[in-house]
Amino acid sequence: MDTKLYTMTYSLNSGIKGTVNLSPKQIEEWINCYIEKSSYVTIIGKEYFGINSVLVADFKVHNAYSEQRIEIEVVKQLSMLNDELVEAYDQKKLE
C-alpha cells in the first residue's frame, strides 16, 4: 500500500519549528487531537512520533490545497490572460 504523505510544519510555543510527513488519516487524527487539546502519538515507518498539541502554537499541512499552490495557479491564469491580451492587441495593431 503506497499512501501519499503530506508535510506538516509546526511551531511550538517555545519557538522551535519542526516538520513531519503524515498520511491523510494521520492528519485527520492530528487535527482532532489539536482541537481536543490532547497528545498525539503515531507510527511513521518504524518510528514513533508524538507531540503534545497544547505546546503547538501553529501548524500547516502542505498539500494540493495549500494556499501557496492556489496562489501560484492564480498567477499562472493571470499570466495566460495577459498573454491573450497582448496577442489580441498585436493583432488589432496589424489591421
Rank of each mutant, 00 (worst) to 15 (best):
M8D: 09
M8K: 11
T9R: 15
Y10I: 09
S11D: 04
S11R: 02
S11F: 00
L12Y: 03
N13V: 10
G15T: 04
I16M: 05
I16T: 11
T19E: 08
T19D: 07
T19Y: 04
V20I: 15
V20H: 02
V20C: 03
V20T: 15
V20G: 00
N21A: 14
N21D: 13
L22G: 04
S23C: 09
S23M: 04
S23H: 06
P24N: 14
Q26D: 07
I27Q: 11
I27C: 13
E29D: 14
E29F: 07
W30C: 01
W30N: 00
I31N: 10
I31Q: 09
I31G: 04
N32I: 10
N32Q: 13
Y34Q: 05
Y34C: 02
S38Y: 08
Y40W: 14
V41D: 15
T42H: 04
I44Q: 09
I44N: 11
G45T: 01
G45P: 09
E47D: 14
E47Y: 10
Y48F: 15
F49Y: 15
G50S: 15
I51K: 03
N52V: 06
S53R: 06
V56I: 15
A57L: 05
A57R: 08
D58M: 09
D58L: 03
D58R: 05
F59I: 05
K60D: 11
N63H: 10
N63S: 12
A64H: 09
A64W: 11
A64Y: 11
Y65M: 07
E67V: 12
Q68N: 10
I70Y: 07
E71T: 00
E71M: 15
I72L: 14
V74P: 00
V74I: 13
K76H: 06
Q77V: 00
S79M: 06
S79W: 05
S79K: 03
L81M: 12
N82P: 00
N82Y: 04
E84H: 12
